[in-house]
Design a protein around this nucleic acid. Structure first.
Lengths: 230, 230
DNA sequence: GATTTATGAATGAAGG
DNA sequence: CCTTCATTCATAAATC
């Protein structure tokens, strides 16, 4: 279809930019048609949106397939690990042997060694509150050593802190446990809110009531979607 | 029934679509040719249309799943424990492999694909002010498609707005000098149409602590499927 | 090169 | 609202 050009551009950018640890900063406005000519294409967010939607669609379809299989064929799968293998089986078409997926998702940033050093040092010293100004500052500093964005720095600190804390918890709670339990399972009572009306912890089990199929075509689905707004 | 055929066709479609782009610059997404002869990008309307179509497919598929669930849960289909058996089929690999208990307690709400569609649609419609009454209304509407509470809706809108805004800031500051960006709105008016569109997400109901499937999006789907029967 | 691990990123929820 | 935290998802890197 018509986006192939856009896709191509996007992929080129990704390939060129992110292998050395860059990327992540791209926005959706990519030059098309050589030098000097710019066309507006999908933003990254739009692209991401579509990617996710298609992925969700594929997921749902796969569920359908598996359900159908489990119904039509007897589930005497040897070992009973059908789920995993089936998943891999059906996933394969989505991942080409060339190595990239349907829509090349954004490559994630990978910190350079130097960047990591600096980040760690900052974390070790003043840590705690990476204020906004500080983030900007650090980002500017780190960009001397490789491609980076403020979001990267922000995420890095967030993750660093969270995982540091979690590790502490784990080591603390593991001291009394010689169980077969390999997983840590935070037994400490978290902040258990009880006054809010936050009770929706129920998995969406089979809903047998509102099942109706518009047997016509896509438009019916669109209608339904449209009518569902308020 | 008709969904058999439908499923078959969809499978073919998916496979064809994703394999076709394997060679060269092609991505499995849409590209049919592989050699870009035409320089054509999507307009916003086209994008929106596509988005809706995908959403419609997702909706239909979801309904199919629900219908299928209702079918399989009938006791006479498989000796009185149809639902359980099916559930065991899908759940076992995930539940037993990690050797842990399923914490059936708190877990954060994850919007269904359909729910997200509706939410995004409402969000897109401008009216960025989700009044209390509106929240209640939306919640009621969404509860047709899965478990949800008003707090969820409220939080979702809050987060959606905040992050959309933040993203705009980032992209604006990032591309800065590039002139391809048409100006969006006057800075004094905060509330305008949102440039970005949805973000889909696969939901997982029960926590699978040890994920041993790394097939990108599909694994999430399996998780969802696994948990949807417990 | 198939799995597993480590970790960047996304997001639901709480606090102020 | 805006910020922060906790959890989860997805993927680059590592491991076997």
């Amino acid at each position: 279809m018509e986006w192939e050009i856009m896709q191509q551009q996007q992929q080129e950018e990704v390939m060129n930019g992110t292998h050395g640890g860059g990327g992540g900063t791209g926005n959706g406005f990519i030059a098309g048609g050589g030098n000097g000519m710019f066309v507006k294409v999908m933003t990254d967010e739009q692209l991401e949106t579509l990617r996710k939607q298609i992925a969700a669609y594929a997921t749902i379809c796969e569920q359908l397939i598996e359900m159908h299989k489990s119904l039509t064929s007897h589930p005497e799968l040897s070992g009973g690990v059908g789920g995993a293998r089936l998943g891999a089986l059906y996933c394969d078409p989505f991942v080409t042997s060339a190595g990239h997926k349907i829509i090349t998702g954004r490559q994630r940033w990978t910190p350079t060694a130097v960047q990591l050093q600096i980040l760690e040092r900052i974390f070790d010293q003043g840590n705690g509150t990476p204020s906004k100004q500080k983030i900007t500052d650090i980002t500017k500093d780190l960009s001397q050593h490789g491609q980076i964005s403020e979001a990267n720095v922000y995420n890095w600190f967030q993750n660093r802190r969270a995982r540091s804390k979690r590790k502490q918890q784990v080591s603390a709670s593991n001291l009394g446990e010689s169980e077969v339990e390999t997983e840590v399972e935070s037994p400490n009572d978290k902040k258990t809110r009880s006054e809010d009306f936050q009770s929706q912890n129920n998995n969406s089990c089979a809903r047998t009531e509102d099942v109706f199929i518009h047997n016509t075509e896509i438009s019916s689905g669109l209608q339904q979607l449209d009518s569902s707004h308020c």
